[in-house]
Amino acid sequence: MTTADDIQKIYIAYFNRPADSAGLSFWKDKVDGGSASLSDLTNAFSGTEEYRNLYSGTSNSAIVEKVYRHRRCVGPCQNTTPWS
Rank of each mutant, 00 (worst) to 15 (best):
L41K: 00
G75N: 00
S61L: 09
D5E: 15
E65K: 14
C73D: 02
S59D: 09
R69H: 08
E49A: 12
R69L: 04
C77I: 01
S35C: 09
S37C: 06
V64F: 03
P18F: 05
Q8P: 04
P76E: 09
G34Y: 06
S56G: 11
S61I: 15
A62Q: 13
I63E: 08
T81P: 00
D20I: 05
A22D: 15
A19V: 01
A62E: 15
A62W: 07
N79H: 05
L41C: 03
F26C: 08
N53G: 07
T80V: 09
N79K: 10
K30E: 15
T58L: 05
A22E: 15
R71E: 07
E65D: 11
D32P: 11
S39A: 14
D6W: 10
R69Q: 14
G47P: 02
D5N: 14
R71W: 08
N43K: 14
E65Q: 13
D32H: 11
R69F: 12
A22K: 13
G47S: 13
G23S: 12
I7M: 02
S37V: 05
L41I: 08
L24K: 04
L38R: 08
Q8E: 13
Y68C: 09
G75P: 00
I12R: 04
W83E: 01
N79S: 11
E50T: 11
W83S: 04
T80I: 09
Q78L: 10
D6F: 11
S39R: 12
F15Q: 00
A13W: 03
H70E: 02
R52Y: 09
I7Q: 09
V64W: 01
Y55Q: 05
D40T: 07
N79I: 12
W27M: 02
A4E: 14
A62M: 11
I63Y: 06
Y55V: 01
I10D: 13
L38H: 08
S39I: 10
T42K: 13
A13Q: 07
S46Q: 15
S37Y: 07
T58K: 12
N53S: 09
P82L: 00
D40E: 06
M1K: 14
E49C: 05
D20W: 07
K9D: 13
V67G: 00
N60S: 15
C73H: 00
G34R: 03
Y68V: 04
N53T: 09
R72H: 13
S37A: 05
C73Q: 02
E49Y: 11
C73V: 00
V74W: 11
W83M: 06
S21Y: 14
V74E: 07
K28C: 10
S56I: 02
Q78N: 10
T81I: 07
F15K: 00
D20V: 04
H70K: 04
F15A: 00
R72L: 12
D20E: 07
P76I: 06
W27E: 06
E49T: 15
A36Q: 10
A19G: 05
G23K: 02
D6G: 14
N16Q: 08
K9V: 11
M1Q: 14
S25H: 03
I63P: 11
E50F: 03
I12H: 01
G47Y: 05
M1W: 13
F15C: 04
Y14L: 02
V31K: 08
L38G: 09
E50A: 12
